[in-house]
């Protein structure tokens, strides 16, 4: 049996706007992760084009993609992916050291409410705290785009809500265009816009007249 091309995404046509908070909903296998990978410059589409402002990402070299990620994108992962050998402050510093106009690590950690934990190692932090460090790390470089891949996937409700409120706060205060990818439909109400993905296509696209307050979200 030869290799079969599987298209994770098909005929996706979408614009992201400055300062917008986008929620991408979809079941596992719906193509939402591939979508995020392409937005984040981790992957390029086999056909079609992706533009970041004037830059054609679909034709970028791996060096250009690295520069794009380094300068424009902040990532928040489902499993935090902190560096275990570095403290909270150092995890953030790792990114600020290679950025052109970062916040100080302390300011970033204050933004996520962790000023009192800056010298703790990941193993000394709870899951929610680790995820907040990860958010601080992602936003410290003042990215244009913040991509969050199932940011609450590994967290309980209370902690998850805390993390979401931090993301929300960053979006509002810093004005970072934010995309949250989740299979959790309850999160949809916090976004400016929601897209539902299914079998690699955008099945439905809705706009919220008003973004829900995090306290109103339950799952």
């Amino acid at each position: 049996m030869g290799e079969v091309d599987v298209h994770a995404l098909r005929s996706v046509d979408l614009d992201l706007y400055d300062g917008e908070l986008l929620v991408v909903l979809g079941a596992s296998g719906s193509g939402k992760s591939t979508f995020l990978n392409i937005l984040g410059g981790l992957d390029v589409p086999s056909s079609g084009t992706v533009y970041y402002r004037d830059q054609n990402l679909s034709e970028a070299s791996h060096q250009e993609l690295t520069r794009y990620r380094r300068e424009r994108v902040g990532f928040v992962f489902q499993f935090y992916n902190l560096i275990p050998s570095l403290t909270a402050r150092e995890n953030v510093a790792l990114v600020t050291e290679i950025s052109s106009d970062p916040m100080s690590p302390e300011a970033a950690l204050e933004l996520v409410g962790l000023s009192n934990r800056i010298n703790h190692f990941p193993a000394q932090l709870s899951g929610g705290e680790q995820q907040r460090v990860a958010i601080a790390r992602a936003v410290a470089k003042r990215p244009d785009v913040l991509l969050c891949d199932e940011p609450t996937g590994a967290l309980d409700l209370e902690t998850g809500k805390l993390v979401l409120s931090v993301i929300n706060q960053v979006n509002l205060e810093v004005g970072t265009t934010t995309a949250i990818i989740t299979h959790n439909a309850a999160i949809a109400s916090m976004g400016d816009r929601v897209i539902h993905m299914s079998s690699g296509e955008i099945a439905e696209q809705t706009s919220n007249a008003e973004r829900a307050h995090i306290d109103e979200i339950y799952w």
Partner: peptide, 16 residues
């Protein structure tokens, strides 16, 4: 590997 891949995702170059 996971740690290093995260760093690559966050914009660290191959060299770094």
């Amino acid at each position: 590997g996971r740690e290093l891949a995260s760093l690559r995702v966050m914009g660290f170059s191959r060299r770094e």
